[in-house]
């Protein structure tokens, strides 16, 4: 097993101080050891569960929420929009 704290943190969108990262690394060695204690399993091709299905929804309109309610928890909103630092992608 190899556990690259930096790489995983990047994927998880988290950052750690060097100290935190070192502590994590140690804890993780243990945790990963625990979860690695899995037997070899016959691997199914997919994770479908045909015996446990859901029902689908009819295509019927339910009124949307008023914009004030939608934006009520937004930390920074302008002109009815959510604001994020400038990004171009």
């Amino acid at each position: 097993m190899e556990f690259d704290v930096k790489h995983i943190a990047k994927l998880a969108m988290l950052q750690f101080t060097a100290e935190e990262a070192a502590a994590f690394e140690k804890e993780f060695a243990q945790i990963v050891k625990m979860v690695e204690n899995l037997p070899e399993m016959e691997s199914a091709v997919t994770l479908l569960e045909p015996e446990n299905q859901m029902e689908l929804r009819e295509d019927a309109v339910i009124p949307s929420y008023p914009r004030e309610e939608i934006l009520q928890n937004v930390p920074h909103a302008v002109a009815g929009c959510i604001v994020v630092p400038k990004t171009v992608d």
Partner: peptide
């Protein structure tokens, strides 16, 4: 954060089969 890190790790490229998929198979067992 610990759990997010562990979860990100077990789903990350190259580890999915060894961890997540195996755990799901074990769940069936």
């Amino acid at each position: 954060k610990r759990r997010i890190m562990l979860g990100t790790y077990v789903l990350s490229s190259g580890y999915y089969d060894a961890y997540y998929k195996r755990a799901k198979m074990l769940q069936r067992a």
